[in-house]
Design a protein around this nucleic acid. Structure first.
Lengths: 354, 354
DNA sequence: TTGTAAGCGTTATCAC
DNA sequence: GTGATAACGCTTACAA
């Protein structure tokens, strides 16, 4: 081994590091691969390779580079990398309303999956407005490698256009040719309608969500079909705001229908409806049974606790991100539907006797 | 006016646009300022100026550039801009637990303010773990211009270090020399303790939050002082997980203390405690009064509804982002404390007779 | 007011 | 296996 140090290499390496660190501090920036290259005595391109693709470099050089990088506390500049590669390693997630409990689980799932893949998640809120949503999408688009739209309000053609530009995945919305993560609405609805039918209910109201909500239409279709199959009377009341307030203000119209069971577009509306019922002295479930969708936080706190159709939203978030990253359009079909299940609680019971 | 077109400029401008668009499509990228420059017949730097600093360009040129940009559907590449300027126009927000309702409002406030300032908000979750938090911060750091840490678990020295590197603002945590947004704990606590005292309570329990939670310690200190001032007996029970489960498992220890009023670190714990009380047949507020902090979604749903100390968390989020952007350390002092207020609901009532 | 040219920190394409 | 060099798309002195 040529262990004897070359006489002219007598510079104290830790001194060199100090000198470089001082220079970095002085220019007030972060260390770059040039700094590392200098300290390790190699070319910047070698540093890039050593850090980026471990295989293609000699073990000795790789070690030198890694040591130098650690010594200088180096982190790659994501902007510079993105500029060169065209990949930002960021993902966008657009949701309608961050304060809606339904969204939390989606966000968490997406965050988990994104972080696991080394991606950074950027979240934007549309506040239930299509215009805001389009703006948010435009703002995010140049910075992200892919986009997840949860319960989007955008028209199908806009979505198509978007999908052509970026890897795009939809949650709770189907558009031909665009990958999406969808709950198996039928299965949960079937259980719910069966549960209500068993309790003697022969007349339902569906309290619809917002006007152009794809998923609200989807739920309505499933409920309608299941009710028809059993010869149960059903009407759709709406559209309504998908909020507590939306549920509250619908009370009178629902009661006027003389239905004995209410299925709300989501738990928030069901909760609003129940609050207003309580205020008006209308008994739940004695006078009317109430059910919702989503099983949000709060559904088991309210009295009576809310019967609801739950979907695994954390999984939806994870899956959407995974699909966005794979960029594989065909996986959309193969992904299948997310299972849903009925959670029976106190807000549903026997239909009142005529 | 020299209105007559120069003979050699006879190229159909819309043709030129088509040609450039085709080229862009072919190379599979987004339009750049070079494309605009070509179409508008000016230099790229002029495009940059026209788009970036409207004042410093002739109206005619500015118009040409804007038209060309619109025609090509141009958007600046944030990465390229960031690389040059060192500013990413992104802000990081690190929260302990996205699914904790307290966090929603902070997120929404931060999002609102960031969007208004043209910044993009990047959210990371630490899942209540200091290690995860440090990781998330490191991951975010190179991509953001500033950072907001909500209820951080990081040690003060790490926070100091961070603040030296980036514009940093804390929510619900104070560290010397680092700007922070803090609630006026004393005022809300004073109201709460007074409310309980008026109802005859002479013995309290404070159900503490996590071990190193600065804000839990803060609340305890305020409660302790207010109780002492009135000669009310008080003990701290904990630390506990700041969750429903944390509240549930504390029931026995709280009851054993024979206190007549419980103040929980947050609403989640208070709700957990009440759920377990109900399960054990312990009446709230007949046997023990319960109060929390935060006024989360769900606090008014549970029965009895929860008495709680509310702070304006949306405002906290907004303010934190605004402070991060201003980068003004002194504004920390001038910002003052966020007002808090007591929301009295059914979970607190008269102390049981001895 | 506008053009010229350098540079931000990486990665990719060549050579050697 | 490693070094030189040219991009990536934008901003910004400095010239003109």
């Amino acid at each position: 081994m040529s262990d004897r140090a070359a006489p002219r290499a007598a510079v104290d390496p830790s001194d060199a590091a100090e000198r470089i660190l001082a220079r970095i501090r002085e220019r007030g920036g972060a260390p770059t691969i040039y700094d590392i290259a200098e300290l390790a005595g190699v070319n910047p391109s070698t540093v890039s390779r050593a850090l980026g693709k471990p295989g293609r470099i000699s073990a000795a050089t790789a070690q030198k580079v890694e040591d130098a990088a650690a010594r200088l506390d180096f982190r790659v500049n994501p902007m510079a990398r993105a500029l060169q590669t065209g990949k930002t390693r960021m993902l966008g997630l657009v949701v309608a309303d961050i304060t809606n409990p339904v969204v939390f689980d989606i966000v968490r799932g997406a965050e988990l999956e994104a972080a696991a893949a080394g991606y950074t998640l950027v979240i934007a809120e549309s506040q239930e407005s299509g215009v805001n949503e389009a703006e948010a999408v435009e703002r995010l688009l140049p910075s992200v490698d892919g986009l997840v739209l949860a319960t989007t309000r955008m028209p199908a053609n806009q979505i198509d256009e978007l999908a052509a530009r970026k890897s795009l995945v939809l949650i709770n919305r189907a558009v031909d040719g665009v990958p999406s993560v969808l709950p198996d609405v039928e299965s949960g609805v079937e259980q719910l309608v069966e549960h209500l039918a068993e309790h003697g209910h022969r007349s339902f109201v569906y309290l619809a969500g917002p006007d152009r909500s794809w998923i609200s239409a989807r739920r309505w279709a499933a409920i309608l079909a299941a009710a028809e199959r059993r010869g149960i009377a059903i009407v759709e009341v709406g559209p309504n705001a998908p909020t507590i307030e939306g549920g509250r203000t619908a009370l009178r119209r629902v009661i006027a229908s003389q239905a004995t069971a209410l299925i709300a577009y989501n738990d928030l509306m069901a909760i609003g409806f129940m609050q207003e019922s309580a205020a008006q002295g209308i008994g739940v479930p004695d006078r009317i049974s109430v059910a919702g969708f989503d099983d949000i936080f709060g559904s088991e706190l309210i009295v009576p606790a809310l019967t609801t159709v739950r979907a695994d939203l954390v999984r939806a978030g994870r899956q959407a991100v995974a699909m966005t990253l794979s960029g594989d359009r065909d996986s959309a079909a193969s992904a299948g539907l997310l299972p849903t299940s009925l959670i029976v609680r106190g807000s549903t019971g026997a239909a009142p006797r005529r």
